[in-house]
Amino acid sequence: MSGAIDWLLLAEFSLVGLLSGGVLALIALGFVLVYKGTRVINFALGEFMMVGAYLFWTANVFLALPWWAALALTLAGVAALGALVERFVLRPLAGQPVISIVMATIGLGAVLHGLAEAVWGGANLSLPELLPRKPLLLGEILLPGQVLWSFALAVALIAAFTAYFRWSKDGVSMRAAASDPVTAYAMGIDVRRTQRLTWMFAGVTGAVAGIIVASMTSLSPSLGTVALGVLAVVILGGLDSIAGAIVAGLIVGLLESLTVAFVGGQARDLVPYLVVLVILMVRPYGLFGTRDIERL
């Protein structure tokens, strides 16, 4: 990059980055949903993604079902998984210190990772390309089709979830149970049911994100490592803010893409973590998160 900045390159990488931020935002939504609903950071989200993608592969490629049937089966599968996890891991740990819950989700991730490797093997599998590849030309800027469509899909899903949270009866009771479980109980809300629903939704978002990521790259047990980087996105946006997750997803996507363009490929993985370190020093509750007020 000697001399003048290549504006066209800058614009192209910025757009691609912003668009690929959509998937990041979708994964971030998986973290935010669980945190809002149950005050837990789900370190096993990456493994949920991976399991979702593997289930989809099994249904679509191995059993040769059409994609909509495979998708329905996958979503039912991960929703069941989420419900099981809530019942047998998280519910017994209610009220335990943060470290117990963090470690429980990490342990859960290890179990899922090991099981997936035992069932499907460690080799790379490939999903059929679900999203059209045809690129979009904006003047001289070329946008890859997969990135564009994954962005559109992510936006649609995020919008759907936001609407659900805001207007549906379940969404309202989930928000109520999250902000004050005791009062929610007193008002006749079945808090256990809302928490189960929360985990099922988290599984579903994770699985969809996993399928998108796997269809764009490839499918292996280590697919889930993407999610740890997304944690940075979540922290940047604020752990309990859906809007924050979207904005932060776009910002991190943009930064990653620009880093690849102007610094080098290896530095890319570092970007989210540097962002998170800076954010935690400057504004620990993120861009849009609620500030915790502590009392004795």
Partner: peptide, 19 residues
């Protein structure tokens, strides 16, 4: 199955002890 088994046992130990 050694490597996956190790991971599963590792995770189950963590979750099991916590619960």
């Amino acid at each position: 199955y050694l490597a996956p088994l190790r991971q599963v046992v590792f995770g189950l130990l963590i979750v099991g002890f916590l619960v």
